[in-house]
Design a protein around this nucleic acid. Structure first.
Lengths: 156, 156
DNA sequence: CGTGTAAGGAATTCTGACACG
DNA sequence: CGTGTAAGGAATTCTGACACG
């Protein structure tokens, strides 16, 4: 399953995502004028423009930040207060990214259902997540030996 | 913690992400000419253009697809074969999204460490994921009562 | 303070075509 | 088949300014 993570890590890496001002505006509901002003105030940032590049380039991190600022402003906060609120949430966002990037070991098959191998639970057992039909998530502990047996090879 | 998921779900919803051909090209390494040709062949798709909109608009789904096609082509596959390989992986991508969107119940604090509440393990216990300093992920089972007690309120 | 708009120049995207193979 | 390029028109982004408040 190392094959999966190696290949797919780059596919899921949101840090590769880049946007120009028009898309970021349509994605978040903030106007281009607002985005330029927020950047001038230092509330958000765009990537350094190499050489003679004209258009601003925003990253996924900025997309998240703008989305949060917009959300808090729509809730009644002033721009400055909304930016402060968003900054506090930033830590949680980073934490979630760490959990996601560390916890995914690959897919497996448990009791005939597709499961996600979440890695070692303790020295003897591996944690699996299963998606039942009711829309929730079930968790199963299986022996490490059984885990590697259950973990299916992806189509080469 | 319902507060967190309600507010942040829209922030993390990658389906809101949109790109134009230039960004998608720079993000994936495929040329604009390639993207137009692949679309003409039906291997990828761009969003319907409303009214007189000129520029193509791509979604995150297409970003993932293009990344995979590019990866397999760089590995030596022909365009058609690479697209077939990518299509097979698509199912796994969708599965991973379902696991992520269902499994996140919010943040908690376990043994003084930040943890991710992954929801019910069984009728009595809640599953928590903890990030130790060694870079891995540890899992803990706590009683449901303790879980709700440990789950910290996010800054309002 | 925070955002809208009109203004002119620069960069992007569009399509259909010619090219090579 | 699969991609590059030159060509001209259309849409986007840029900055600094004027406006309202």
């Amino acid at each position: 399953m190392a094959q999966f993570t190696d290949e797919m890590r780059k596919v899921f890496d949101v840090h590769r995502l880049v946007f120009r001002i028009g898309e970021l505006a349509s994605m978040t509901g903030a106007s281009p004028r607002q985005l330029r002003y927020w950047e001038k105030k230092g509330l958000i940032s765009s990537r350094e423009r190499e050489d003679g590049q004209q258009a601003r380039v925003y990253t996924f991190k900025t997309f998240v930040m703008v989305s949060m600022i917009k959300y808090f402003m729509d809730s009644g906060y002033t721009l400055t207060a909304a930016a402060q609120q968003a900054q506090q949430r930033e830590d949680n966002v980073r934490l979630l990214h760490r959990f996601i990037s560390r916890g995914m070991q690959g897919f497996a098959e448990v009791d005939g259902q597709i499961a996600l191998n979440l890695g070692a639970f303790d020295a003897q057992q591996t944690l699996m997540a299963v998606l039942p039909d009711d829309g929730g998530v079930d968790y199963r502990l299986v022996s490490n030996a059984e885990a590697s047996r259950l973990t299916r090879e992806l189509p080469a």
